[in-house]
Amino acid sequence: MDMVAVEGVPTWRDRKRYLWILSLITPGCAVIPSQLVLRTGQPIFWWLGPILIFVIIPVVDRLVGDDGENVPDDAYKWLSEDRFYRWCTFLFLPLLLAGLIIAGYMWASPELSVLDKIGLATTVGLISGVGINAAHELGHRVEEHERWLAKVALAQSCYGHFFVEHNRGHHMNVATPNDPASARLGERVWEFVPRSVIGGFRSAWQLEKSRLERKGSRAWSVHNNILQAWSMSVVLFGAMLAVFGPTIAPYLVLQAVVAFSMLEVVNYVEHYGLLRQQLPNGRYVRCSPRDSWNSDRLVTNIFMFHLQRHSDHHANPGRRYQTLRTSDVAPQLPAGYATMILLAMIPPLWRRVMDHRVVENYGGDITRTNLLPRRREKLLAAYGVDKQLADAA
């Protein structure tokens, strides 16, 4: 069933319902490079992941444009409970694993050059980075089996602590200086990624340690969600090394690094420079759609399970991906995530495109943004703000 009768208006149909199946093309791209190379003789297809994510999707995104449709209130419950949408995320995982296994076989082959193996590892890593997004969707659910599947999805990237930090750390501290995953105005992506990786791990461990202590348990126990997730990575990588040999180890590590780096660059894009208002008691106002960058480009949304409707996700983290809405009050990115990731890789271009948008989002008042502390004075001067007056305010 793909339509529902809404009182007082014509029957509403979810026009994107079967488009979500296209999201499975992404993990499929880790499975098919070997066949493309075999049939065409072109080794460029070992790099299919970067070609898809950074060339094809941005171009098609630009041509297709925005979505613009939101689910009506009366259809929300029906759409949330439709299990078709859940299976789109469930099926992502076996395809992801199949791609890694095929890649392991190819990495062990003496027929591939080192450059070809690096290209395949990059492809698998980028697909695994998108797989973290599937884990992100599953990890927000209350159903126990979906939360376990989230940990499974994180095994390939060795980023199991994300399960804890994202839900209980990032969502609590987003768009504040306390959040390692919220980029600051003036911060380059190359500075942000290591800060977010290290800070996210520290935060996750402390959160899980505190949770277990409240339950009267030790941090180093089988009840630790981080250790559970990491143990899945150990088992997965151990099995891959046992089957295909130790020569694949560098490529296993490379694809994991590419995967979690992809996640962190997306984090950089999602909250760059945004800051929630701080109350007199030191707390921050409740998270709203204004505290995340939004993009409603249809194609990238389909491939990333509506992740670009990030403003609604943070304002309503319990909503399933198919019910997320685009918001007019949210700050809008000029392009989809795939394009914005490319811009982020070139800091001067990124700042030319984004810095003025951040400041304009706060009515031209740069003091209301999440400023990088060591560049604060320079940024204030660039916008004609006296540092002493800003400090006094």
Rank of each mutant, 00 (worst) to 15 (best):
L263K: 03
R141S: 12
E143W: 05
H356N: 14
Y76P: 00
L112E: 02
N225I: 11
F45R: 10
I101Y: 12
A108V: 02
V59P: 02
T369R: 04
R218V: 09
W87S: 08
N178D: 11
A256I: 13
L36Y: 07
R168A: 10
W148H: 10
W46H: 05
S80Q: 14
N316L: 08
F163C: 07
G160D: 05
T326G: 13
V265L: 12
M304W: 08
A175M: 01
I226Y: 01
H271F: 05
K16H: 06
G104Q: 01
G186L: 13
V197S: 00
F303G: 01
P10E: 15
W205V: 15
R352P: 00
Q228G: 00
V164Y: 00
R368S: 11
S261T: 14
G199T: 04
S217I: 15
Y362W: 07
R13I: 15
T339Q: 01
A338L: 10
L254D: 00
R218T: 08
Q388H: 15
L19T: 05
E137P: 10
L236A: 13
E377K: 14
A256S: 14
A150G: 11
E144S: 07
D312E: 10
P50R: 05
R352S: 10
P246S: 09
L91N: 01
V189L: 06
L48G: 06
H136P: 07
D82L: 12
A335M: 09
F305W: 15
M3Q: 15
A108E: 01
N281L: 04
N316Y: 11
D66V: 14
V353G: 04
V329Y: 12
G49T: 01
P246M: 14
N167W: 09
F303M: 13
A335F: 05
I53Q: 06
I248W: 09
M304V: 10
L24D: 02
M106D: 12
I302F: 01
P280S: 05
G68W: 08
V359W: 11
S311F: 13
A315R: 08
L349P: 03
F84S: 06
V174M: 05
A153L: 02
Y362G: 03
V55N: 06
D73T: 12
V164N: 04
H166M: 05
L97V: 15
R39D: 09
E69I: 15
L138W: 13
A393H: 14
A150Y: 06
D14A: 12
G282T: 03
L275H: 09
A338K: 00
P250A: 11
V243Y: 03
E264K: 10
V253Y: 11
A103W: 06
N294D: 04
V253G: 02
R283L: 15
F305I: 13
G238H: 06
E111N: 10
P177Y: 12
I302E: 04
V257W: 06
L149W: 12
P347I: 08
L274M: 01
N167S: 10
L307E: 07
G99P: 04
R376Q: 15
L207S: 10
T339D: 01
W220K: 03
L79D: 07
R290E: 15
L38E: 12
S196M: 07
V197I: 15
V222A: 13
V285T: 14
V37M: 02
R290Y: 02
F54H: 03
G28P: 07
D291W: 07
